[in-house]
């Protein structure tokens, strides 16, 4: 993207870089926190299912000239509630329900893409993320979604923690498990969509799962685990953006490699200690 002769200080002055950092940090923050709950609920693969469903939404948006982020959001919300419907009605286990939704959403996308006459550059940017070329309008949307997710988590993380730990006891304690779980599903869909611009459909699952996995190896209490998760996610994203700006390599790839590196480092430290 820029030549290696550009200094780090110069880089800080570029608007594309500032946008990327702001969007990346917000997305990583939301993804990490949501991801910790998903990992503890053993529902990490739902992310992959919903992200692939979102592909259908993006294709539809591009085809009909609607903002793809909004059409993807609508389709993902249908996807995430579809998964929980199949599961709650006993029609499929969680993993199979996810597989069905993943295939259904992705197929819808493929059909629309073929009708439109093939893949466009735009579609590729959603599959693999394009944080370094994020527009001001996208950044505003991503930021608004991230703020909504973080506001929900700030208010209800204790209740979500109780539900994650023991759903039946939480219900008995008078915590409104059903409504909170429904809003949580909604928030999962929103988080995935806001991250697609950053890291892309294929790798969004990594941004959600890896920071939590790495932090859980540290065997800390909950508060500290949340802090560690978010720190790992944000740090990896910033490192990924900086490295990819200098060397003109795929940002999402570098972010994932940084996270895996941190994960391995912590895992081996935990084994030794």
């Amino acid at each position: 993207m820029i030549s290696p002769s550009v200094s780090f200080i110069d880089l800080l002055g570029y608007q594309f870089f500032q946008h990327a950092i702001l969007g990346g940090v917000l997305a990583a923050f939301a993804c990490g926190w949501i991801g910790l709950f998903l990992v503890l609920r053993r529902e990490a693969m739902i992310v992959d299912g919903v992200a692939h469903t979102a592909f259908g939404g993006i294709a539809l948006g591009l085809f009909f000239g609607i903002d793809p982020v909004l059409s993807a959001l609508a389709v993902s919300i249908i996807g995430v509630f579809g998964i929980s419907y199949l599961r709650n009605k006993g029609l499929a286990q969680s993993d199979s329900a996810t597989a069905v939704m993943l295939a259904l959403g992705f197929s819808a996308g493929l059909i629309v893409v073929s009708l439109a006459g093939g893949f466009s550059v735009d579609l590729f940017s959603y599959l693999f993320g394009s944080i370094l070329s994020i527009s001001r309008q996208d950044l505003a949307l991503v930021s608004a979604l991230a703020v909504a997710v973080l506001a929900f988590l700030t208010l209800f993380h204790k209740e979500l923690l109780a539900i994650t730990f023991d759903e039946e006891s939480s219900r008995m304690m008078g915590i409104p498990v059903k409504p909170l779980s429904a809003v949580f599903n909604l928030i999962v869909a929103v988080t995935i969509i806001l991250s697609i611009r950053i890291i892309g459909i294929i790798l969004v699952v990594a941004l959600i799962v890896l920071p939590a996995l790495a932090a859980l190896q540290l065997r800390l209490p909950f508060r500290e685990t949340v802090l560690a998760t978010v720190t790992i996610g944000v740090l990896s994203t910033v490192v990924g953006i900086i490295i990819s700006s200098f060397y003109n390599v795929a940002t999402s790839g570098v972010i994932v490699f940084t996270m895996v590196g941190i994960y391995l480092l912590i895992a081996s430290y935990a084994r030794l200690g």
Binding site: K158, E159, F165, I175, P176
Partner: peptide, 9 residues
């Protein structure tokens, strides 16, 4: 977490 409930939501 025992302090949580409908009233303290």
């Amino acid at each position: 977490l025992g302090r949580l409930g409908k009233r303290n939501l």
